[in-house]
């Protein structure tokens, strides 16, 4: 599903060059639930942005669903993100003064074909994350946990191949964290591919597999001891 080969990322400044990723080779299969761990500054977000086709590495290859990503131009990358990737960020990034429903509909605006049942789909996605009674609330009228669930619904609306979540619980209290993780586990059971970036081992433990980033390299590739459906009681 996702394959990288020898990905390197170096930030060059006139005075210093910072190598952040130093040869990442990994492969994630369809339906896998993977966590990427590492200390702050270890390059988790950098890797995640590269996997999500938001950023390009200094060198290396990325194959997504059989497509060699770096042969695509900017428009094709946008289309690919729209169709195949659902993003969830620590800061939610919802449009404020915009209803939950409209936020969820946003990716469809940029879809090649706007489905006739767009609203229906958005409502279903919101129901799926337990927000059926908050659809017409403005983003800034929702709690952090609710906002993150709207963001998950937005990531799901285009039925993506993979969900990339960068510290999705970083701004949430334990209750909301629990809700979000539960949703991820459910999505995983439904067969979705999920990659979660976190520095919190308790969060990572929900995944099937944990990749650990240290000094720009993957130093550990463990399979989680926890059962798959640990999010459910």
């Amino acid at each position: 599903m996702i394959k990288t080969k020898n990905i390197e990322k170096t930030y060059k400044k006139p005075s210093v060059t910072t190598p952040v990723l130093r040869g990442i080779t990994l492969s994630i299969h369809r339906g896998e639930y993977v966590a990427i761990m590492g200390t702050s500054g270890s390059g988790k977000s950098t890797l995640m942005n590269i996997l999500g086709c938001l950023d390009k590495p200094t060198s290396g290859q990325l194959e997504l669903d059989g497509t060699d990503v770096y042969t695509l131009d900017d428009d094709a990358l946008s289309a690919l993100r729209n169709k195949k990737i659902g993003f969830v960020f620590q800061q939610f990034f919802l449009l404020e003064r915009t209803t939950a429903l409209e936020n969820v509909l946003l990716p469809l605006i940029y879809a090649d074909n706007y489905p006739a049942d767009a609203k229906q789909r958005a409502k279903k996605a919101l129901t799926n994350v337990g927000l059926e009674d908050r659809m017409e609330y403005l983003a800034n009228e929702l709690s952090g946990g609710q906002q993150q669930r709207v963001a998950i619904a937005r990531a799901l609306i285009n039925d993506p191949d993979v969900i990339l979540a960068d510290e999705p619980t970083g701004n949430l209290d334990s209750g909301s964290t629990h809700e979000v993780l539960e949703i991820f586990s459910r999505l995983h059971q439904e067969g979705r591919t999920i990659i979660v970036v976190t520095h919190d081992r308790a969060v990572a433990e929900h995944a099937q597999r944990i990749l650990e980033l240290k000094e720009g390299q993957i130093i550990e590739n463990t399979t989680s001891s926890k059962p798959e459906n640990s999010g459910n009681h």
Partner: peptide, 16 residues
């Protein structure tokens, strides 16, 4: 900026 960023992330092309 963030609005533009998230739009680009979810699939807006430059010309959009």
């Amino acid at each position: 900026r963030n609005e533009i960023g998230i739009r680009r992330a979810i699939g807006a092309k430059k010309r959009d």
